[in-house]
Amino acid sequence: MSEIKQTFNSSLGKKLIMALTGLFLCTFIIVHLGGNLFLFKNDQGYGFNVYANFLTHFPPIEVVAYLLYLAILVHALYALILTINNRKSRPVAYAAQTKSPASWSSKNMGLLGSILFLFLVIHMGDFWYKYKFTDTVGFKEYRTNVLTNERIVNDFKPADPTFEHSSTTENDVEIVRVKDLHTKVASSFSQLWYVIVYVIAMGALSFHLLHGFQSAFQTLGWTHRKYTPIVKFIGKWFFAIIIPLGFALMPIVYYFFK
């Protein structure tokens, strides 16, 4: 066995993979939340649809996207392997269990991760899969007068079934035709069960990151008397509170106000 392979087969190596994929996914959700802020913009979905189109058609991003899917799968797979090994390490359970001094989230990463994985299946099945591989998502045409910024929105039915998007300018009017993910999102978010699933999943994300973000630094061995408190602060306030809250607000706002 080569030394590199041996490294990643060790218990610490597996944890290294968890930490690295986890941190990569952390960086992704920042970008994802940033993009999704377009949903709060009152522009009839223009910004959001253009952004969605950009993500799916800009080659470097596409590559990163597939890395991302891989990271999710590897993160989940290694979590599963580690969990199985960890279970084997204690074949006989204790009869008495008191409230352990360890934090709840740290002890339930597997449960939280499983919820998130289920959520991702629903989430990607509903948006990503339908957007990319089916024709259930319609098109919109945005005609924007570049001088007055007035915008007219119409449904658009492409003649060519392979049509994906176009952007042209005619007489100071910019015509953008893109897939209308925004309407799809709005319709999904109008269903109560869907909103509940989202809110629960974001709760899980919050607790998962509350432990996960700082834990990744611990696993990597990046702890320091001066900097670790900062990492913990970011993990708590940014990753465990602001980000999940931002995501959870989207379905809530759409359900109640749109």
């Binding site: 218990s11 090994n85 960890n86 934090s103 740290s106």
Partner: peptide, 22 residues
């Protein structure tokens, strides 16, 4: 030492901190 630890069949660390507390 880590190689021997793995060989002995201990689980892996999930940074819960229960060890430190106890």
């Amino acid at each position: 030492m880590v190689a021997q630890m793995d060989e002995e069949g201990f689980g892996s660390c999930t940074n819960t901190g229960a060890c430190e507390a106890e």
